[in-house]
């Protein structure tokens, strides 16, 4: 590319940035026109990144220095709404990642979460269990609203001795198999489930495999289950 041409392109890009596209469109040579347009696009992109970066930085600083920011985090917001409606149902401080609830009136809360028009959590996206150690088991629910497009995570912790949580299988039908699997793997009992059986393992299996202290049974119907195979590795 000659120096002349470069100079011409630079001039045209300047004009283009100022909003004058007529001159660029009037270029006869297609190759040159293409070059000018691509240079213009590049210049515009560069201008955009430099202008947008600065306000984002300011915003972040503003958030950190504010004393009590009005949180729009859904877990904070809806956690507060739940606590206002069902007094004493929270099991821990509100935070950004999840809402920790007590198991006692979970069925009523779940029913309300789905039916209340301003919340309308119509989809249970995921439900799983977790062995938290220290004798605690936890069930987790990821809820999403198709209408409002907001989502929250509910966690309910129970002790191993009394691992009972009300079933929400009648509220979100997908919960049927979800809860059966959690029961199968963690031994959390879902009270009120209409088909409370194991999901994957055989009915007469002993123990719950995803618990941290799980010990494999020695035989199953006369078939020996070797624990750790010797002579491997």
């Amino acid at each position: 590319m000659s120096a002349d041409q470069e100079k011409l392109i630079a001039e045209l890009v300047e004009k283009g940035l100022a909003g004058d596209m007529d001159e660029i469109n009037a270029i006869e040579d297609r190759v040159l026109r293409g070059k000018v347009k691509s240079a213009l696009a590049k210049a515009k992109r560069a201008a955009k990144t430099t202008t947008t970066a600065a306000p984002a930085e300011e915003k972040r600083v503003a958030e950190t220095i504010a004393d009590t920011p009005p949180s729009d985090n859904p877990n904070q917001k809806f956690g507060q709404i739940i606590e206002d409606t069902f007094q004493g149902s929270l099991d821990a401080e509100l935070n950004d990642t999840h809402i920790q609830l007590k198991p006692d009136n979970w069925f009523e809360i779940a029913k309300w979460l789905k039916s209340e028009p301003s919340l309308h959590f119509d989809s249970l996206q995921c439900h799983t269990g977790m062995d938290m150690g220290e004798n605690m088991l936890e069930a987790r629910y990821n809820l999403h609203s198709m209408t409002h497009d907001h989502k929250i995570e509910i966690r309910i912790a129970v002790s191993r001795e009394k691992a009972n949580i009300p079933s929400i299988e009648q509220i979100w039908r997908i919960g049927d198999w979800f809860e059966r699997e959690t029961y199968d793997m963690f031994g959390i009992f879902f009270d009120g489930h209409r088909d409370h059986r194991r999901m994957l393992l055989p009915e007469d299996w002993e123990g719950y495999p995803l618990r941290k202290d799980y010990e494999v049974q020695e035989t199953y119907h006369g078939i020996a289950i070797p624990k750790v195979k010797e002579g491997w590795e």
Partner: peptide, 15 residues
Amino acid sequence: YWQHGYHVLKGVDIV
């Protein structure tokens, strides 16, 4: 599943 598959039969020749 030879070593850690608690639910897997270690060879069908067992049954």
